[in-house]
Each structure stands twice: as C-alpha cells, then as structure tokens.
C-alpha cells in the first residue's frame, strides 16, 4: 500500500519520465521499427506518446504493462488494423519502408504481418477452409498446393497430428487451445514474416497456454514475433526482448533477462515485482 502511493506520487512530480531504451547495433537485423509513433483516438489525449522501438528479426519480443498502458494500441498499429477514428503520427518502418503512409496497401501489409488475438476467432468453417479461405480469396491455387499449405502450416503450429484426420470438421468443434493454434496456422499460411500476438494465451487454460508458448518458441527460427502479455512469467519464459509500457510511454526496453533481473528504471522494477498493475 505504501509503495503504491509512492509511485503515483513520483509520476506526478516528474516532468521528464525516466526511460531506458536499448539500442540495437547495426549487426542486429531490424524486422520492424517505429519512429516517434504517436496514436490518439477521436482527437482525445494520446493513447501512445512518441514511441521509438526496433524489433530484431527472428526474436520474440514481449510488450508488458498494465491495462491501458498503450501496449495493445501499439501492437495493433503495427499491421494497420487500428479502428476508423485512430490518428497515427510518426513512422512505422517495415524492413525500412514506412508503412504508415496512405499509399501503402494495408491488405498487403496485413498479409506480411500476421496477427492473432486474445480470443480465438476461427471462422465458422471447416478446419481446412479456415486455412485456405484467405489464400483462395487472393489468388488461384491447385488442390495439391492448398493441401500442402494446410499441412505445413498446421505442422508449424503443432496442430497437424491432432487434426489431420478431421480437416473437414468445423473449426468451432476444437478446444480453445487448438482453436488458437489453428488461428496461428491460418496466419502462417499466408507466409508472413512477422507475427503479432495480442495476449494469445490469456483466454486459455494452463495446458493450452503451454502449447501455445511452445509453438511460439518453435516459430522463432522463421518469424519475428511480437507478443503482448499480462503474464510476466510468460514474458520471462518465451521472449528475448521485453518492452515495458506505462500510461502511453515505453519506460524500458531491454533484453528480457535484464528487465526481469536488473531493470534500470524504478517503475519497471516495481511493475515486474508486482507492486502495481
């Protein structure tokens, strides 16, 4: 109780918020990077203040922070899936190309930057059609090609062995954890290179959570993964980097092990220790 009051106090009194953001050196490849990214809804107060974050290729980065800290808002802006009344300022550099630009085709961006949400949202279609639907809307494929893609993406999501004999069953008949992995497979089928996960396991039971986490770690070699999570243990278990968000600001961004063992900012250590949030 005492420490909580102290934190609120210190935020109020500080004009400059103390921050620490790691600098990726040039030998680290950057899959996606934001420059002065600012987000506001309906012209109200900023949901996110100038944010500069770079994400290394083939690594898992966790975004942590309390509800309303701006981490989900940030994640959603990365593949331009934000709502109608959202204003985004600054740059989002995808392999160096600024995609926060009206000339960019957002559908193409979303194919390359896949996204998985908190609650599993398979279509009310068969398992097979869930995976092929987006593909067949984009181009023509032969049956063999589709079969191959279905198999490989289900394998990548570690679901193939469980569903290979019932691909024509409704996706809604799967368990929550299976549904979430199907949704991951569905995104992978489009051959993205970045995967955004918005609290992918928070609606799942512990066993399903473990399965989804394993899947994430296995996917790392081929994909860059950015995951929003409320679960500090999860962030510590799976991610290479962690960024801590607080009230629309990135307070600290560093290697995960540093964030959880020797954070440089007091606010981060308080949050990681569970003092608030």
């Amino acid at each position: 109780m005492v420490s909580r009051n102290k934190i609120v106090e210190s935020i109020k009194n500080e004009v400059e918020i103390e921050k620490y953001v790691i600098n990726l050196s040039s030998k680290h490849q950057r899959a996606i990077e934001t420059k002065d990214l600012t987000i506001s809804y309906n012209g109200k107060k900023n949901a996110l203040n100038k944010t500069n974050l770079a994400f290394e290729t083939n690594k898992i980065t966790s975004l942590i922070g309390a509800s309303g800290s701006g981490k989900s808002t940030f994640l959603r802006s990365l593949n331009l899936i934000h709502g109608e009344n959202t204003l985004i300022g600054g740059q989002i550099l995808y392999h160096g190309v600024n995609i926060n630009d009206p000339s960019i085709d957002k559908f193409e961006v979303r194919r390359r930057i896949g996204m998985v949400f908190q609650r599993p949202n398979p279509f009310a279609k068969s398992i097979y059609n869930n995976i092929t639907f987006a593909l067949t809307q984009r181009a023509k494929y032969t049956k063999n090609q589709l079969d191959e893609i279905v198999e490989s993406s289900l394998k990548q999501a570690a679901l193939w062995d469980q569903v290979k004999d019932e691909l024509n069953k409704s996706a809604l008949s799967l368990s929550g954890g299976q549904q979430q992995r199907l949704v991951i497979a569905r995104a992978l089928a489009l051959k993205p290179d970045i995967l955004l996960l918005d609290e992918p396991a928070s609606a799942l039971d512990p066993k399903s959570t473990m399965q989804v986490e394993e899947t994430m770690v296995n996917l790392k070699k081929d994909y860059t993964i950015i995951v929003v999570t409320h679960n500090m243990q999860q962030a510590a278990r799976v991610s290479d980097y962690t960024a801590f968000f607080h009230m629309g600001n990135v307070i600290e961004y560093d290697l995960t092990r540093k964030i959880f063992t020797r954070p440089k900012v007091k606010l981060t250590s308080d949050y990681v220790a569970g003092n608030f949030g």
């Binding site: 160096g96 960019i104 085709d105 961006v109």
Partner: peptide, 12 residues
Amino acid sequence: LFKQLTKKSVAS
C-alpha cells in the same frame, strides 16, 4: 519492397 507494398492488392 515499397513497390510491392504500394501495388493495389486484389483485396483492396
């Protein structure tokens, strides 16, 4: 990459 991303997709 810029060319690919600015080309009007079927979806759009």
